[in-house]
């Protein structure tokens, strides 16, 4: 009889210890989520033209997105990735003497707020703030280049 009583107590104690361990476990995980070290920003520069039908295998993942814009030919001119710190500028050289300045501002609700500025030399072309889903992208297009237009795919992912 004595032994039977002892068993639940030891089980109960073990369960409580296990619960305590589990309760403490998410602390470092939570801390990691709050303190995102930075953002990996990737810029894909695409030249869109209507000269002839063509397909670039490097753009296969973006095929559906590019179909929205309805040009006949897309060609990946340049792809560059940089690790950007929060509230710090990451500068990307864009063909045609342009540059793209990206500043990650905030990470909330699985979205990264990016302040993006496209410059032509010193002259600003566009200033925008976009909340991009983590590991998602948006397209910025329109600047004329070599008989077509440039489309910039701007994507961001927390690290």
């Amino acid at each position: 009889m004595k032994a039977k009583r002892k068993l639940p107590r030891s089980l109960f104690r073990a369960a409580l210890l296990f619960s305590l361990w589990l309760a403490l476990l998410p602390a470092p995980l939570g801390a990691a989520e709050k303190g995102q070290p930075g953002v990996q920003v990737k810029i894909g520069t695409i030249l869109a033209t209507n000269q002839a039908d063509c397909s670039d295998s490097q753009l296969s993942k973006m095929k559906q997105q590019l179909e929205v814009i309805k040009y006949r030919c897309y060609h990946l001119v340049k792809e560059e990735s940089q690790k950007a710190s929060w509230l710090a500028n990451a500068v990307f050289e864009i063909p045609g003497g342009r540059s793209l300045v990206v500043m990650p501002q905030e990470y909330r609700n699985n979205r990264i707020s990016l302040k993006v500025r496209l410059l032509e030399g010193e002259k600003p072309i566009v200033d925008t703030t976009v909340r991009v889903p983590n590991r998602g992208n948006f397209l910025l297009g329109g600047p004329a280049h070599e008989g077509g237009v440039l489309i910039l795919s701007i994507s961001a992912a927390t690290q």
């Binding site: 072309i125 925008t128 703030t129 992208n137």
Partner: peptide, 16 residues
């Protein structure tokens, strides 16, 4: 719960 689209908060076209 939400759409997975990027949301534009502000745009300034600087003449464009």
């Amino acid at each position: 719960n939400r759409s997975n689209l990027a949301a534009v908060e502000s745009i300034d076209g600087h003449g464009f």
